[in-house]
Each structure stands twice: as C-alpha cells, then as structure tokens.
C-alpha cells in the first residue's frame, strides 16, 4: 500500500523553528483547538464532528442479544474503529495499523473502562437478554488529532442516542418499535473527553494542543489525557517517545481539565439545542432527565 507522504526536511525545520518562536502555521495559540463543530443527524445517535479538516462520524446503534456467559448481568458495549482507505490510502481493511490499535484502545479505556455508560442498565433478563450497544467510528478525513475528535464524536453519539423502549410483563419481554413508543436515552454516567498534547524539540520542551497532521508527523512524543468535567482522570497515555519532564506533564493535565470542561459545556449546549429542535408535545420532560449528571 502507498505510504504516507512525509514532510520534507525544509518543512520540518520551518515548523519547528516557528514553534520555537511560539508560532504555529495556522496562527493558533499553542493551547488553542481548531474550530470544533458538531452536527447531529436526522436519526438518533449520529454525530458528525469536524475539527479543522479532521472529520469523524460516529453512529450508535443497539440490538437485543444474549449477554456473555461470564457477565450475565451486564449488557454489551463495543466501540468499532476501523480506519478505511478513505482516511488515507495507507490504511488497509482488515489489517489494523498501529494508529488504529492505539485509537481503539484509547477510546475503549476512556469511554468503556471508565464506566461512562452504565452497562448494567443494558441488562434485560439476567443471563438471557441484554442490549448490545455498538458505536461505529468512521474517520472521513484525517488532518491530525484523530483521537480527540473521535472521542468527542463517540461521547456525543452515545449521549444523543435513543434505544427502543422495552417492557417486562409476566416474564415476557416486549421491545417497542419507534412507531409504538418513543425510544429512550441510555443511562449515561459521565462524559470523558480526550485531550492530546504533542511535544516537540530535543527535550520535548514545547507542548501544544490539537496538532495538525504535519505537526503530528514531526512531534517527538504525545500524551493523551482523558478526563471529565469533575476532574476525574479516566486514562493517561504517554506511550513512550522522547522523555518529558514530570512537572510539565502535571501542568498539561491541569490545562487539559479546563479544555475538558469547555468540551463538556459545548456538548451540553448542542444536545440541549437538538432536544429543543426535536421536542414535540410532552417529550421534553422525559428527555431532560438525561443531563442530571
């Protein structure tokens, strides 16, 4: 498969020297994100996130299935991240690259292992029936900082998603179609966001947020911190690379918290806006219970 184009030596030096003078090619501050845009689809659970030229589409879906035998009280929750050649011809189907594995592990740790979605609430009949919630992440265009955009899209899609309503009567489980009963939101516990720092320079002394594709190719190390607005870290991943001073990492985590709070506020606003748009009749009361936590 064709390889990615690498930035030329001149390009590398230009970017690096500019960074040393606190300048970025697109004129941003070092801790400034590119404009983040979120649009929801007509259906529930579709979130389209644009971060500069990076674009990620996440779609949540649910179906009733049999729970795993070793976890009869839990529903199933999977995040599928397959990078198609649409992202870049360097990606091949059915052959995970390092980017893909790391992305999928990060989303897994950030959203799934941090218990953002209450999987116990997905159980319908212990050991027999449960919901299987699946989020498909489609990367339409990759211009750096895939992780932050993908994580935001996944969280947005899940919070926007409604699964069909069910009822249990005398041991009989009924799943209602959307025409019969309005679908219900998932039981969502907290919203984690990924914030990725990229480090530059021989000592990793320059740190910046939301690196573009060119910057990502030049960086010497990166550190992804996932946290929610309550200041709970869900995951930190600095997987090798040039060593960075411990104190600098602590400072990065502090800035990351303020960014996570910004993301959280933005997402809450967008969700409220969407709810208002969709609100027909007496639905509002049911939907507004969602944002309590």
């Amino acid at each position: 498969m064709p390889r990615e184009v690498e930035p030329s030596l001149n390009e590398k030096q230009f970017v690096l020297q500019a960074l040393q003078e606190n300048l970025r090619l697109d004129g941003r501050e070092i801790d400034q994100y590119r404009p983040l845009e979120l649009t929801f689809g007509d259906q529930y659970g579709v979130a389209d996130v644009t971060l500069g030229k990076t674009r990620v589409l996440a779609k949540a879906s649910a179906e009733v299935t049999v729970p795993y035998t070793d976890r009869p009280l839990d529903g199933i929750f999977t995040i599928a991240t397959e990078l198609s050649p649409m992202t870049s011809p360097a990606f091949e189907l059915n052959r995970p690259t390092e980017t893909e594995v790391l992305l999928s592990r990060l989303l897994e740790k950030t959203v799934r292992r941090s218990n953002a979605l209450d999987t116990e609430s997905l159980c319908l009949i212990a050991g027999q029936k449960c919901w299987s919630v699946r989020v498909d992440v489609h990367v339409l265009s990759h211009d750096g900082n895939l992780i932050d955009a993908a994580c935001f899209a996944v969280v947005a899609a899940l919070r926007h998603f409604r699964k069909p309503d069910t009822s249990m009567e005398g041991g009989v489980l009924t799943v209602y179609t959307p025409a019969e009963r309005e679908p219900v939101p998932l039981s969502w516990l907290h919203s984690p966001f990924c914030i990725t720092w990229s480090f530059f320079g021989d000592q990793g002394e320059i740190a910046l947020l939301d690196a573009t594709w060119v910057e990502e190719q030049i960086r010497v190390a990166s550190c992804t911190i996932s946290l929610n607005r309550h200041g709970e870290i869900c995951q930190i991943a600095k997987l090798g690379g040039t060593p960075v001073d411990a104190v600098a990492l602590l400072q990065c985590s502090g800035v990351a918290l303020t960014k996570a709070k910004e993301f959280s506020t933005y997402l809450d606003g967008k969700l409220a806006e969407d709810t208002k748009k969709r609100n027909k009749g007496g639905l509002l009361a049911e939907l507004s219970a969602e944002n309590d936590r």
């Binding site: 179906e63 050649p85 299987s132 699946r134 799943v175 179609t177």
Partner: peptide, 21 residues
Amino acid sequence: IQIVLQIEDTPENDYVNTKLV
C-alpha cells in the same frame, strides 16, 4: 483506483427494529 463509499444515513423503517450488527 480506489473508491471508498461510506454510507452515512439510510431511511429507517419505523415499524421494525433492525438487527444492526
């Protein structure tokens, strides 16, 4: 010549709960 077609949206049938996986 590589053509990737990503489906984003399909009309939903409100009367059936689809199998999605």
